[in-house]
Design a protein around this nucleic acid. Structure first.
Lengths: 190, 190
DNA sequence: GTATTTGCCTAAAGCCTTTAGGCAAACTGG
DNA sequence: CCAGTTTGCCTAAAGGCTTTAGGCAAATAC
């Protein structure tokens, strides 16, 4: 019997792709086993359980997103950097909805941790790097990190859920105007 | 055999309470049947399926939240109204985390609809009512509705997930400052 | 007080998770 | 190149959640 060549990393990768196709919640150990034409029990040699699998997928996604954000921020500052960062998040969520959902699956973070937490730290640092263009002290800077994170994540979540698709203007039209508004706000943060 | 007195409404109500105790994702037809000391199959006379149950819980929660928001907004305007609305959402999410999660479970909305959509419309109208204090035209007003919804929902989601609990200042300290920042922003929206 | 409706039951099939134990393929060193 | 060891995938099985079908009894209606 030929071996399928499974491994924790390959399962996480395939799981991430599956999440984008059928939705993160629909990713199951069984579905992944079918994908590899392998018995379900075989996957349990590579993954502790279903939560562990989801945590690995979340880590893959969060890391991938941090890489893209870092690349987009290179050589940019101020308003330009803010738009670049925001667009990376939104574009990632639109092209990889399952993976984006996975990044926020913190229930699973308690199972793995380590690399997930590292990737999370990279994200905060990238946001703080953007904020260096706005000259904020503490606690304003932390407030601003939270404001940006909340607004960007909130907008993406609502758009993905279809909340903006039944009214004008299009979600893509509002987006840059909202990011510009945040830029203005940060510039005049008391 | 004494009857338990089940009904769609009672199941939705009990389901909402269960969601706050164990988390919305953990609410299952089986768990609810156990709660009523009744056979699982019995619930299927009152609820079409698991998604239907979740959609009913979502509707209960969204309606309850709209009621509270409407009450809090009575007699308020401007900055005052904005804080009141924002606080209603955040307080509701903190006291009823399962129900708050349910309100955003739009996958289920396709199953039921009607009342859920109604409650959703009430929420948009309340936000627009708050924005009347800021004198915005279109498309600025719609942009502002989306900004407020995104930031408030995003902040609540991240706070609930524990994203703000490992750094200073506390989530409760940042919150009013962020809402104030939004007030300032709306006041000077170009 | 009979007739009808309604509510909860038993039974059963299907899918997902997870553990235990086994055989064979693939590396490892002489 | 071929033993010995590791590793990978297998079969088997138990337990939980969902959902449908069909039945008996309690509540309601006339």
């Amino acid at each position: 019997m030929a071996r399928a060549g499974l491994s924790g990393a390959r399962l996480a990768q395939a799981g991430a792709e599956l999440a984008d196709e059928v939705g993160f919640e629909q990713v199951t150990v069984s579905a992944l086993a079918r994908h590899f034409s392998v018995q379900v029990a075989s996957l349990y040699s590579h993954v502790r359980n279903s939560d562990d699998l989801k945590a690995r997928i979340a880590t893959v996604a969060l890391t991938e997103l941090a890489d893209q954000a870092a690349a987009a921020l290179a050589g940019r500052a101020g308003r330009d950097a803010l738009h670049a960062l925001a667009d990376v998040y939104r574009d990632y969520a639109r092209t990889h909805p399952g993976r984006y959902t996975a990044t926020r699956h913190t229930a699973a973070a308690s199972v793995l941790g380590e690399q997930y937490v590292d990737a999370g730290r990279r994200h905060s640092e990238l946001v703080r790097a953007v904020l260096r263009g706005y000259d904020l002290g503490e606690p304003a800077q932390t407030d601003a990190v939270r404001l940006l994170g909340s607004t960007i994540h909130g907008y993406i979540t609502l758009e993905l859920a279809g909340s903006f698709s039944h009214s004008e203007p299009s979600a893509s039209d509002s987006w840059p105007r909202i990011i510009d508004a945040l830029d203005t706000l940060l510039r005049s943060w008391s």
